[in-house]
């Protein structure tokens, strides 16, 4: 009985490896307009300002590939903490022998996971993406400084998250892709910052109406290019 189960599992694992051993890359590429975003470098939105990004992290979860409307691949326990300034984290992989026309994923952590207690890996609360005074994951974190902010060290901090209505910040992203080769998803931070008006709003630190609004703009920062 036990033996048969092992043999069966072995077969599954072998075929799984055979089918999926070929991997394509899916790269998250942070940009400021068309330039690659680098930490501690000053950028310009307009003539008068200068902006520096010190931290840019977010969760990508429930990664899926679709062919037309049909889901052709779904990643198991799919949670990735992406640190835009850490090369190791910005590359995800997808199987290469599957034809797909769309990539689907979420920015943030779903509500069920949010209420399921302590978890490990990228979801470990030591990763700095968990609120301590009120339970919940921070889906998306963008920090930096700008002369537009009338704050200490001209800092701005946007910690977007919240899993309960009416402040659910989870975002679903669909990206159309043409070729099957390695896909790069560019994320233009400048687009978010243009939306914010840093002179008026310089921090969001809890689930709120503002967090929901800004989260809704994250999907608009994406564009696709191919390696």
């Amino acid at each position: 009985m036990v033996m048969r189960k092992f043999i069966w599992m072995f077969c599954v694992l072998v075929t799984h490896n055979f089918l999926f051993s070929q991997q394509d890359k899916l790269v998250f590429h942070p940009t400021f307009f068309n330039q690659t975003l680098k930490p501690e470098v000053y950028y310009k939105l307009n003539a008068k300002d200068s902006i520096q990004i010190t931290s840019f992290k977010f969760y990508v979860s429930q990664l899926e590939l679709l062919n037309g409307r049909e889901t052709v691949w779904k990643e198991q326990s799919s949670f990735h903490l992406i640190d835009a300034f850490d090369e190791k984290t910005i590359v995800l992989s997808v199987p290469s022998n599957i034809t797909f026309t769309k990539i689907k994923f979420q920015i943030g952590i779903d509500s069920l996971t949010n209420v399921s207690g302590a978890m490990g890996g990228d979801l470990d609360p030591t990763k700095g993406m968990y609120w301590t005074w009120q339970s919940g994951y921070i889906n998306f974190k963008l920090e930096g400084n700008s002369n537009l902010c009338k704050t200490r060290h001209n800092e701005f901090q946007f910690h977007l998250g919240g899993y309960q209505q009416p402040f659910n910040c989870l975002q679903t992203v669909f990206v159309q892709v043409k070729s099957k080769a390695n896909v790069t998803l560019n994320m233009d931070v400048a687009k978010l910052l243009l939306y914010i008006q840093l002179s008026e709003l310089n921090h969001i630190m809890s689930p709120s109406k503002e967090a929901v609004e800004l989260s809704g703009k994250i999907t608009e920062t994406f564009s696709v290019s191919y390696e």
Partner: peptide, 24 residues
Amino acid sequence: AINHLDMQALAPISHPDEMGEKIE
């Protein structure tokens, strides 16, 4: 404020008036 017993300890550990520490 806390949605799960596992996450409870994070609050006093991190609270500046309680234990003033970081889980990291």
